[in-house]
Amino acid sequence: MTIVVTTPTGHVGSRVVRLLIQAGVRPRVLVRDPERLAAATRGHLDVRRGDLADAAFVREATAGARTVFWVDPTPHTAEDPIGTTERTAAALADAAGAGDVARIVFLSSVGAEKRHGMGHIDGLARVEQLFDATGADVLHLRCGYFFTNLLLSLDELRQGVLTTAADPDGPMAWVDPRDIGEVVAARLLNEEWKGRVVQAVHGPEDLTFTRVAEILTGALGRPVRLRPVTDDDVRSQLGSAGLPPKAVEGIVGMLAGTRGLAREQPRDSTTTTPTPLSAWAYAQLRPLLAE
């Protein structure tokens, strides 16, 4: 059984790699810079060096694999994030359509089910459709808001501020990427599921940004004040930072699209993962802010 893992050094992928190794699997990892792989795991991996945006590399590196874990590598700052996301996944879709890959586990997002009006998430929706058309067994993991997105706010958090354009009192699914990695690994190792499957990954509880600021205040041992901003504020800030217009609208579209987003799947034992934000923030954010 050959399992391919893309973005193996990311928050989710690194956890998937570790769990597969512990399960006795030698995963094939696709990575641009092998030096970023954890030294303790390199000897247990089949490492293929290349860029996921290189269609020829993806086709060659996935040939003969039974299962592929696909994570879109497109940064939100890309000049055409939605189009790039779709084009990058096309090589894997071609491989699956040709029968070279039998199963795909795809890291998607809540909101992809809407298919449009979700900014960069619209690109993930297009990838879902690409993979669905291949005839392979496909699992779409529609994940909530990553705890690790807070790492982008370290400088502000040091000043006791958390800025957001989201509805301060709108509940959202928040999830630890390590918990997502555990769901991914379990699905990669499970040979029983077939066809097209959608599974949400919601984290342990829905949180508003108001509640997040309260949780961070307790976990970090310092007051954190929420600073709401508008979509136009975000546009102005991102434009001033030099981001291309489509990148700006891709980010703003995600913020706007997730406001009031109705849950597609219920919160139950399948979609709920265990790690609370308070525990993650204490273990991960607090040491970084103390440096």
Rank of each mutant, 00 (worst) to 15 (best):
V5E: 02
T9E: 06
H11R: 15
L19A: 09
L19C: 05
G24Q: 02
E35N: 13
R36H: 07
H44I: 08
L45R: 10
R48F: 00
R66D: 14
V68E: 03
F69G: 08
F69Y: 15
H76G: 05
E79L: 14
P81V: 02
T85D: 10
E86W: 12
R87G: 06
A89I: 13
L92M: 12
L92R: 11
R103D: 00
V110Q: 15
A112T: 11
A112Y: 04
I121Q: 03
G123H: 02
E128V: 01
Q129N: 12
G135Q: 04
L141E: 07
R142T: 12
R142V: 11
R158C: 01
L162D: 00
T164H: 04
P171W: 03
G181T: 06
G181L: 10
G181V: 09
A186L: 07
L188M: 06
L188D: 04
K194V: 15
V201N: 11
P204Y: 13
T208Q: 14
F209Y: 11
T217G: 11
T217V: 12
V224N: 06
V229P: 03
L238M: 08
G239Y: 07
A241H: 02
P244F: 00
E249H: 01
I251H: 00
A256S: 13
T258G: 10
T258F: 14
L261Q: 01
Q265H: 08
D268H: 04
T270D: 13
T272M: 15
T272A: 15
P276Y: 10
S278Q: 12
A281C: 01
L288D: 00
A290I: 01
